[in-house]
Amino acid sequence: MIKIIDLNKSFGLNHVLRGVDLTVERGESMVVIGGSGSGKSVLIKHIIGLLRPDAGRVFVDGIDVFQLKEGELNELRRKFGMLFQGAALFDSLSVWENVGFGLMQHKKLSDKEIKEIAVEKLRMVGLVGVEDLMPSELSGGMRKRVGLARAICMEPEILLYDEPTTGLDPIMADAINDLIVDMKDKLNVTSVAITHDMKSAYKIADRIAMLYNGKIIEVGSPDEIRNSGNPIVQQFITGSASGPITIEGVRHEGDFHRA
Protein backbone atom coordinates (compact mmCIF):
# COMPACT_ATOMS: atom_id res chain seq x y z
CA MET A 1 0.00 0.00 0.00
CA ILE A 2 2.71 2.48 1.06
CA LYS A 3 6.30 1.76 0.12
CA ILE A 4 9.10 4.13 1.09
CA ILE A 5 12.45 3.48 -0.58
CA ASP A 6 15.78 5.03 0.41
CA LEU A 7 14.31 8.40 1.37
CA ASN A 8 16.84 11.19 1.94
CA LYS A 9 16.13 14.73 3.05
CA SER A 10 18.36 17.54 4.31
CA PHE A 11 17.52 20.99 5.60
CA GLY A 12 20.67 23.04 5.05
CA LEU A 13 23.45 21.11 6.74
CA ASN A 14 21.04 19.05 8.80
CA HIS A 15 20.77 15.63 7.14
CA VAL A 16 17.45 14.52 8.66
CA LEU A 17 16.51 11.39 6.71
CA ARG A 18 19.42 9.21 5.61
CA GLY A 19 17.87 6.43 3.59
CA VAL A 20 14.54 5.44 5.15
CA ASP A 21 12.99 2.18 3.92
CA LEU A 22 9.55 1.22 5.17
CA THR A 23 6.58 -0.73 3.86
CA VAL A 24 3.06 -0.43 5.21
CA GLU A 25 0.56 -3.13 4.18
CA ARG A 26 -3.09 -2.49 3.35
CA GLY A 27 -5.23 -2.30 6.47
CA GLU A 28 -2.21 -2.19 8.73
CA SER A 29 -1.59 0.28 11.53
CA MET A 30 2.07 1.30 11.49
CA VAL A 31 3.53 3.42 14.25
CA VAL A 32 6.88 5.14 13.76
CA ILE A 33 8.62 5.96 17.03
CA GLY A 34 11.66 8.14 17.53
CA GLY A 35 13.00 10.99 19.60
CA SER A 36 12.15 14.66 19.20
CA GLY A 37 13.91 16.02 16.13
CA SER A 38 14.56 12.56 14.70
CA GLY A 39 12.67 13.42 11.51
CA LYS A 40 9.39 11.61 12.17
CA SER A 41 7.28 14.57 11.06
CA VAL A 42 9.48 15.03 8.00
CA LEU A 43 8.94 11.38 7.11
CA ILE A 44 5.16 11.51 7.40
CA LYS A 45 5.01 14.73 5.35
CA HIS A 46 6.80 12.97 2.50
CA ILE A 47 4.14 10.26 2.34
CA ILE A 48 1.47 12.80 1.38
CA GLY A 49 3.79 14.90 -0.77
CA LEU A 50 3.98 17.98 1.48
CA LEU A 51 7.76 17.81 1.27
CA ARG A 52 9.92 16.69 -1.65
CA PRO A 53 12.87 14.42 -0.93
CA ASP A 54 16.46 15.01 -2.03
CA ALA A 55 16.58 11.37 -3.08
CA GLY A 56 14.36 8.31 -2.78
CA ARG A 57 10.80 7.38 -3.61
CA VAL A 58 7.42 6.94 -2.03
CA PHE A 59 4.85 4.64 -3.67
CA VAL A 60 1.19 4.76 -2.70
CA ASP A 61 -0.79 1.93 -4.29
CA GLY A 62 2.07 1.56 -6.76
CA ILE A 63 2.00 5.25 -7.77
CA ASP A 64 5.24 7.22 -7.35
CA VAL A 65 4.13 10.29 -5.36
CA PHE A 66 6.95 12.55 -6.57
CA GLN A 67 6.41 11.83 -10.28
CA LEU A 68 2.91 13.27 -10.17
CA LYS A 69 1.85 16.65 -11.57
CA GLU A 70 0.07 18.99 -9.20
CA GLY A 71 -3.44 18.01 -10.30
CA GLU A 72 -2.66 14.30 -10.10
CA LEU A 73 -1.10 14.75 -6.66
CA ASN A 74 -4.30 16.41 -5.42
CA GLU A 75 -6.25 13.49 -6.88
CA LEU A 76 -4.05 11.07 -4.90
CA ARG A 77 -4.37 13.15 -1.74
CA ARG A 78 -8.10 12.50 -1.69
CA LYS A 79 -7.23 8.98 -0.54
CA PHE A 80 -5.60 10.47 2.55
CA GLY A 81 -6.73 12.02 5.77
CA MET A 82 -4.21 13.64 8.06
CA LEU A 83 -4.40 14.65 11.71
CA PHE A 84 -1.83 17.33 12.54
CA GLN A 85 0.00 17.71 15.81
CA GLY A 86 -1.72 20.96 16.73
CA ALA A 87 -4.87 19.86 14.83
CA ALA A 88 -4.26 22.73 12.32
CA LEU A 89 -7.93 23.73 12.27
CA PHE A 90 -8.74 26.73 10.07
CA ASP A 91 -9.37 29.52 12.61
CA SER A 92 -11.54 31.54 10.28
CA LEU A 93 -14.06 28.73 9.79
CA SER A 94 -16.54 27.22 12.25
CA VAL A 95 -16.17 23.63 13.45
CA TRP A 96 -18.58 22.14 10.92
CA GLU A 97 -17.02 24.11 8.06
CA ASN A 98 -13.64 22.73 9.13
CA VAL A 99 -14.93 19.16 9.16
CA GLY A 100 -16.77 19.54 5.86
CA PHE A 101 -13.96 21.50 4.16
CA GLY A 102 -13.01 18.71 1.78
CA LEU A 103 -16.65 18.21 0.79
CA MET A 104 -17.09 21.95 0.22
CA GLN A 105 -14.09 22.00 -2.09
CA HIS A 106 -14.62 18.79 -4.01
CA LYS A 107 -18.27 17.73 -3.87
CA LYS A 108 -21.30 19.54 -5.19
CA LEU A 109 -23.38 19.46 -2.04
CA SER A 110 -25.52 22.10 -0.37
CA ASP A 111 -24.32 23.64 2.90
CA LYS A 112 -27.15 21.87 4.68
CA GLU A 113 -26.05 18.44 3.43
CA ILE A 114 -22.41 19.15 4.28
CA LYS A 115 -23.36 20.25 7.77
CA GLU A 116 -25.35 17.03 8.27
CA ILE A 117 -22.36 14.91 7.24
CA ALA A 118 -20.05 17.00 9.46
CA VAL A 119 -22.33 16.55 12.47
CA GLU A 120 -22.38 12.80 11.80
CA LYS A 121 -18.54 12.66 11.64
CA LEU A 122 -18.29 14.75 14.81
CA ARG A 123 -20.56 12.24 16.54
CA MET A 124 -18.18 9.47 15.43
CA VAL A 125 -15.34 11.15 17.34
CA GLY A 126 -17.57 11.72 20.36
CA LEU A 127 -18.44 15.37 19.92
CA VAL A 128 -22.04 16.58 20.07
CA GLY A 129 -23.34 20.15 19.84
CA VAL A 130 -20.04 21.83 18.95
CA GLU A 131 -20.61 22.25 15.21
CA ASP A 132 -21.34 25.98 15.35
CA LEU A 133 -18.44 26.89 17.65
CA MET A 134 -15.20 28.42 16.38
CA PRO A 135 -11.93 26.47 16.81
CA SER A 136 -10.64 29.05 19.32
CA GLU A 137 -13.47 28.08 21.68
CA LEU A 138 -12.36 24.44 21.89
CA SER A 139 -9.99 22.69 24.33
CA GLY A 140 -6.88 20.86 23.09
CA GLY A 141 -8.52 17.44 23.19
CA MET A 142 -11.62 18.71 21.39
CA ARG A 143 -9.46 20.32 18.71
CA LYS A 144 -7.74 16.99 18.06
CA ARG A 145 -11.12 15.29 17.77
CA VAL A 146 -12.35 17.90 15.32
CA GLY A 147 -9.10 17.44 13.38
CA LEU A 148 -9.77 13.71 13.30
CA ALA A 149 -13.35 14.27 12.15
CA ARG A 150 -12.00 16.47 9.34
CA ALA A 151 -9.47 13.80 8.40
CA ILE A 152 -12.13 11.08 8.08
CA CYS A 153 -14.78 13.26 6.45
CA MET A 154 -13.86 12.31 2.87
CA GLU A 155 -13.75 8.62 3.81
CA PRO A 156 -10.02 8.17 3.20
CA GLU A 157 -8.23 4.87 2.66
CA ILE A 158 -5.13 6.03 4.51
CA LEU A 159 -4.95 8.01 7.73
CA LEU A 160 -1.80 9.79 8.87
CA TYR A 161 -1.43 10.84 12.50
CA ASP A 162 1.26 13.35 13.48
CA GLU A 163 1.82 12.91 17.24
CA PRO A 164 -1.85 12.31 18.03
CA THR A 165 -1.47 12.31 21.84
CA THR A 166 1.16 15.02 22.32
CA GLY A 167 0.05 17.82 24.61
CA LEU A 168 -2.97 15.99 26.01
CA ASP A 169 -3.55 14.82 29.56
CA PRO A 170 -3.19 11.01 30.04
CA ILE A 171 -6.93 10.35 30.07
CA MET A 172 -7.61 12.43 26.98
CA ALA A 173 -4.59 10.81 25.31
CA ASP A 174 -6.03 7.37 25.98
CA ALA A 175 -9.41 8.47 24.65
CA ILE A 176 -7.70 9.57 21.42
CA ASN A 177 -5.91 6.19 21.26
CA ASP A 178 -9.26 4.43 21.59
CA LEU A 179 -10.62 6.58 18.78
CA ILE A 180 -7.70 5.70 16.52
CA VAL A 181 -8.25 1.97 17.16
CA ASP A 182 -11.95 2.55 16.60
CA MET A 183 -11.33 4.29 13.25
CA LYS A 184 -9.28 1.35 12.07
CA ASP A 185 -11.98 -1.18 13.02
CA LYS A 186 -14.90 0.88 11.70
CA LEU A 187 -13.42 2.36 8.55
CA ASN A 188 -10.91 -0.37 7.71
CA VAL A 189 -8.20 2.16 6.91
CA THR A 190 -4.46 1.83 6.57
CA SER A 191 -2.73 4.15 9.00
CA VAL A 192 0.66 5.58 9.78
CA ALA A 193 1.16 7.32 13.11
CA ILE A 194 4.26 8.94 14.48
CA THR A 195 4.71 9.34 18.20
CA HIS A 196 7.14 9.24 21.07
CA ASP A 197 4.42 8.14 23.47
CA MET A 198 5.09 4.39 23.95
CA LYS A 199 1.79 3.73 25.68
CA SER A 200 0.00 5.07 22.63
CA ALA A 201 2.28 3.13 20.27
CA TYR A 202 1.61 -0.22 21.99
CA LYS A 203 -2.11 0.45 21.95
CA ILE A 204 -2.64 1.47 18.35
CA ALA A 205 0.12 -0.35 16.44
CA ASP A 206 0.02 -3.57 14.45
CA ARG A 207 3.70 -2.95 13.81
CA ILE A 208 6.16 -0.45 15.26
CA ALA A 209 9.18 0.99 13.44
CA MET A 210 11.92 2.90 15.19
CA LEU A 211 13.53 5.88 13.45
CA TYR A 212 17.00 6.74 14.70
CA ASN A 213 19.73 8.84 13.08
CA GLY A 214 17.69 9.19 9.90
CA LYS A 215 17.13 5.46 9.39
CA ILE A 216 14.62 2.82 10.40
CA ILE A 217 16.67 0.65 12.78
CA GLU A 218 14.03 -1.90 13.72
CA VAL A 219 10.52 -2.94 12.66
CA GLY A 220 8.33 -5.43 14.47
CA SER A 221 5.11 -6.17 16.31
CA PRO A 222 4.67 -4.41 19.67
CA ASP A 223 5.81 -7.59 21.42
CA GLU A 224 8.89 -7.94 19.26
CA ILE A 225 9.80 -4.32 19.95
CA ARG A 226 9.20 -4.74 23.66
CA ASN A 227 11.62 -7.69 23.69
CA SER A 228 14.09 -6.20 21.24
CA GLY A 229 17.75 -6.91 21.88
CA ASN A 230 18.80 -3.60 20.33
CA PRO A 231 20.08 -1.35 23.17
CA ILE A 232 18.97 1.80 21.32
CA VAL A 233 15.40 0.51 21.04
CA GLN A 234 15.45 -0.66 24.66
CA GLN A 235 16.65 2.72 25.87
CA PHE A 236 13.93 4.53 23.94
CA ILE A 237 11.00 2.34 24.93
CA THR A 238 11.98 2.29 28.59
CA GLY A 239 12.59 6.03 28.47
CA SER A 240 16.00 6.17 30.09
CA ALA A 241 18.33 9.16 29.84
CA SER A 242 21.44 6.95 29.97
CA GLY A 243 22.31 4.59 27.15
CA PRO A 244 23.58 4.66 23.57
CA ILE A 245 21.24 7.54 22.56
CA THR A 246 22.84 10.81 23.57
CA ILE A 247 20.88 13.98 23.96
CA GLU A 248 22.48 16.82 22.07
CA GLY A 249 23.72 19.60 24.33
CA VAL A 250 22.92 17.67 27.50
CA ARG A 251 25.56 15.80 29.42
CA HIS A 252 24.54 12.97 31.59
CA GLU A 253 25.69 13.20 35.20
CA GLY A 254 27.82 10.07 34.88
CA ASP A 255 29.74 11.61 31.96
CA PHE A 256 30.91 14.44 34.20
CA HIS A 257 32.56 12.06 36.62
CA ARG A 258 34.15 10.12 33.82
CA ALA A 259 35.43 13.26 32.08
Binding site: K45, I48, G49, L50, E70, N74, E75, R77, R78, F80, G81, M82, F84, Q85, G86, A88, L89, F90, D91, F101, G102, Q105, H106, R150, M154, L160
Partner: peptide, 22 residues
Protein backbone atom coordinates in the same frame (compact mmCIF):
# COMPACT_ATOMS: atom_id res chain seq x y z
CA UNK B 1 2.12 33.51 8.39
CA UNK B 2 0.12 32.14 11.31
CA UNK B 3 -1.55 29.64 9.01
CA UNK B 4 1.90 28.52 7.85
CA UNK B 5 3.44 28.07 11.31
CA UNK B 6 0.36 26.29 12.70
CA UNK B 7 0.38 23.92 9.70
CA UNK B 8 -2.98 25.16 8.39
CA UNK B 9 -1.46 25.63 4.92
CA UNK B 10 -0.21 22.02 5.03
CA UNK B 11 -3.68 20.98 6.11
CA UNK B 12 -5.17 22.74 3.07
CA UNK B 13 -2.85 20.74 0.84
CA UNK B 14 -3.72 17.44 2.52
CA UNK B 15 -7.37 18.29 1.80
CA UNK B 16 -6.39 18.42 -1.89
CA UNK B 17 -6.85 22.20 -2.03
CA UNK B 18 -4.33 24.42 -3.77
CA UNK B 19 -3.36 27.07 -1.18
CA UNK B 20 -2.41 29.62 -3.85
CA UNK B 21 -5.87 29.37 -5.35
CA UNK B 22 -7.70 29.26 -2.03
Amino acid sequence: GTMRVTEQIDALETLATNPVKY
